[in-house]
């Protein structure tokens, strides 16, 4: 409470990153998205709306760029000026990358966005004053701001629609920043259940809403600390390291390696917790 106390314990106030002297202990939630399996169908995005009480902003506000999809499916075309995209489109589900060295966390004036002990980039709605500095500093632009008071003045959930709202997730009022939480409400429930039974959360015991919906199972989610979990094995196989000091194994090889795993903007050293697996296209046709 006192200033002297604060100064004495300074290092403990904001020190949740996995530095060498303090690695993740029980959990480090991470995700991988296989772009070869992703069909771009948008099921994950709608599931996210359902799970996380995301407001539907309507045409006008969508036009103004104020849409609130925590999970957005991006569609890219080849840039090589071919007449037809004869190798199809590229789809990329983009969500908060839950960076280990998150650019958003350091800049928040009130500390409303923090790193949790299990490696999530948390957003404390009650603490947020809406300076939007976090969004300004996010390389992926996956933070969404409540430009309007969606539940009240905007009446996004009229009449019975409110009954659909997930009571485990806050309905955000105007002026706060929000973003993908890796479905933290599901994680907490699973952790509590595990704790009650005196164990850790099993691999596959908890799914994020997007992962659960994904028809092609392109999304894998789990605990990176547990070496036998699917996610840890995936990361290990692709030789992607969470806090690689410089480059990933894939980037170091001349001409690229035969691995598929990569993270977006590796060079910015934000150390994202989401690994993407390259889309593959048949060379024989």
């Amino acid at each position: 409470m006192s200033v002297s106390n604060m100064l004495e314990n300074w290092s403990k106030f904001r020190h949740m990153h996995p530095v060498d002297d303090k690695p993740h202990e029980e959990y480090k939630w991470a995700m991988s998205i296989d772009l070869d399996a992703c069909s771009g169908c948008n099921a994950c995005s709608v599931a996210c709306y359902a799970e996380n009480n995301l407001p539907v902003v309507g045409k006008q506000k969508f036009d103004a760029g104020q849409q609130m999809h925590w999970m957005r499916i991006e569609r890219y075309w080849d840039d090589d000026g071919r007449e037809f995209p004869d190798q199809g489109a590229q789809f990329l589900p983009m969500l908060c990358q839950q960076c280990e060295a998150a650019p958003c966390e350091t800049v928040c004036p009130v500390g409303a966005t923090n790193h949790t002990a299990d490696g999530l980039n948390s957003q404390v709605y009650n603490r947020c004053i809406g300076s939007r500095y976090c969004s300004a500093n996010c390389p992926f632009k996956v933070r969404y701001f409540n430009w309007y008071d969606y539940p009240t003045t905007d009446n996004v959930w009229p009449a019975e629609m409110t009954q659909q709202l997930n009571p485990d997730v806050t309905v955000r009022g105007k002026g706060v920043m929000e973003k993908c939480t890796f479905c933290v409400q599901r994680l907490e429930r699973a952790k509590n259940n595990a704790r009650t039974e005196g164990r850790l959360v099993h691999d596959g015991e908890v799914q994020t809403a997007c992962q659960q919906a994904c028809p092609t199972g392109a999304i894998t989610f789990g605990n990176l600390v547990e070496p036998e979990s699917k996610i840890a094995r995936q990361w290990a196989h692709q030789q992607v390291e969470l806090a690689a000091r410089d480059k990933q194994a894939k980037d170091e090889q001349e001409g690229g390696s035969d691995l598929r795993g990569y993270r977006i903007f590796e060079e910015l050293r934000a150390y994202p917790s989401v690994m993407y697996l390259e889309r593959v296209r048949e060379s024989a046709i």
């Binding site: 772009l35 045409k59 969508f62 036009d63 849409q67 999809h69 957005r72 991006e74 569609r75 890219y76 075309w77 840039d79 190798q87 489109a89 590229q90 789809f91 990329l92 690229g256 035969d258 691995l259 598929r260 990569y262 977006i264 993407y276 390259e278 889309r279 593959v280 296209r281 048949e282 060379s283 024989a284």
Partner: peptide, 27 residues
């Protein structure tokens, strides 16, 4: 009114959604 930005479906030379051909990767 659409989700894609001003550059449409271009990645503008930035490595975001990456594609490889089958002979480049070991599946």
């Amino acid at each position: 009114v659409k989700d894609e930005g001003a550059v449409g479906g271009s990645q503008a030379g930035v490595k975001i959604a990456v594609r490889a051909s089958t002979d480049e990767v070991e599946l």
